[in-house]
Simulated scan of single mutants.
Amino acid sequence: MNYTFHQLQVFLKIVETKSITKAAVELFLTQPAVSIQFKNLQNQFDIPLAEVIGKQIHITDFGYEIAGMAERIINEVYAINYKTLTYKGILSGRLKLAIVSTGKYIMPYFLTEFLKKHPNIELTMDVTNRSKVLESLEKNEIDFALVSVLPAKIEVEEEILMENRLYLIGNGQEKFTKVPYDRSIFGKIPLIYREQGSGTRVVMENFFETSKVQVRKKMELTSNEAIKQAVMAGLGYSVMPLIGVHTELLTNQLQIISVSGLPVKSVWRLIWLKDKKLSPVAQSFLGEIRQNKLEILAKNFGWLDSF
């Protein structure tokens, strides 16, 4: 056996993404480079690590076992590096986050100064849908999750970061003269929903339920970006977080339609498992947020109050 640390890293990323192409993108490598590293690793085993059926790569049971051992090896190597830096008085280690898709407009601003201050910290941040975020949290695969709606079946602790406001959003070219519209407007316009389980959808449906209004659902899409494009194209309207449509509002591609009872308000919150023993890196990050939160909000999100 003569496998390399790099080959193990590449294989783990293939297992994670189930794709040579996606692994190459996330590793900042070319697809042929990833294929070569995977082939060189596979050549050292008589049993296949993966099978390609059609155009889809499928990891074998043996491959998953090797991946588990590879992850432990890589973690131990990282631990050696981090321990060395710790003895030198340098904060180092991994910070692992999972955030819902709209959170990409928020979380970077809470990370920037912390990572500049501690350049030896390695960040892993998975931007995905709410169900996968909560799955990662429940499995204790991450330090923190960023969500707008608390999970119902997981005991967590939280740090509230900022307010989340949701408005009825429409195409910027249409004319809406009444201010505000009655909530009955939701039964007259075609509405675009996020997928089941989305925090945005939970907040939106709670508003409809408590308001006892009839709605006209037209379609369901799996990301706020897809909904923005559909609304801009004139396919319908949606109740969306203000944080994700700022640029399009400024350029008049989208507009806020004033409706009685809106905006709906929730909060963006950083959550972690109750009784979780946070690593020194995670503790330091949480401390920095608590200390600098108001400054971060004033510097980067003061524009929210202009809408």
Rank of each mutant, 00 (worst) to 15 (best):
K13W: 03
L137M: 01
S35H: 14
K55A: 13
I271D: 04
I227Y: 00
P280F: 08
K178E: 14
Q196H: 09
D305Q: 13
L85I: 13
H6A: 07
V259M: 04
P263M: 06
R201W: 10
M240Y: 08
A50R: 13
A145N: 06
S284V: 02
M240D: 09
R72C: 07
I154G: 00
K117N: 11
L297N: 10
K218I: 05
I53F: 14
R290A: 13
E65Q: 12
L270V: 07
E122N: 11
L97G: 00
V77Y: 12
Q173G: 11
I73E: 13
N206T: 10
Q214F: 13
E155V: 06
K132P: 07
T177M: 12
E16D: 15
N40W: 00
L250G: 05
P32Y: 04
L115Y: 05
L150R: 02
L161M: 05
W268Y: 10
Q196L: 15
I59M: 14
L254P: 07
V215T: 12
V239R: 03
L123D: 03
W303N: 09
V202N: 15
M240A: 14
T247A: 15
D182W: 10
S148E: 09
E155C: 07
D61V: 11
L278H: 01
D275L: 03
K217T: 15
F285M: 03
S184Q: 13
E158M: 15
F28E: 10
K104Q: 13
F5S: 12
L134F: 02
F207T: 08
L254R: 03
G187A: 14
F45A: 01
E295K: 15
L150N: 01
F110D: 06
L278A: 02
R183D: 07
E163R: 10
Y82G: 00
T222C: 10
I227F: 00
A145Y: 06
V10C: 02
Q255Y: 11
L250E: 15
Q253C: 02
A233E: 12
P280R: 04
Y64H: 11
L286A: 02
G68C: 08
A145H: 06
E26R: 03
V133T: 05
S19Y: 06
L123E: 01
I160N: 10
V245I: 13
I192M: 01
E155T: 10
K175I: 12
V231D: 01
G302Y: 10
D275T: 07
L49V: 09
N75G: 06
T128H: 05
L286C: 03
R269S: 11
N40I: 02
Y82H: 07
S284L: 02
I154T: 00
L91I: 12
Y181T: 00
A50L: 09
V213T: 01
S266R: 14
K293C: 06
I99T: 15
I189G: 05
E225D: 15
I121M: 04
G170W: 00
T112E: 13
L294E: 15
H6W: 03
D305G: 14
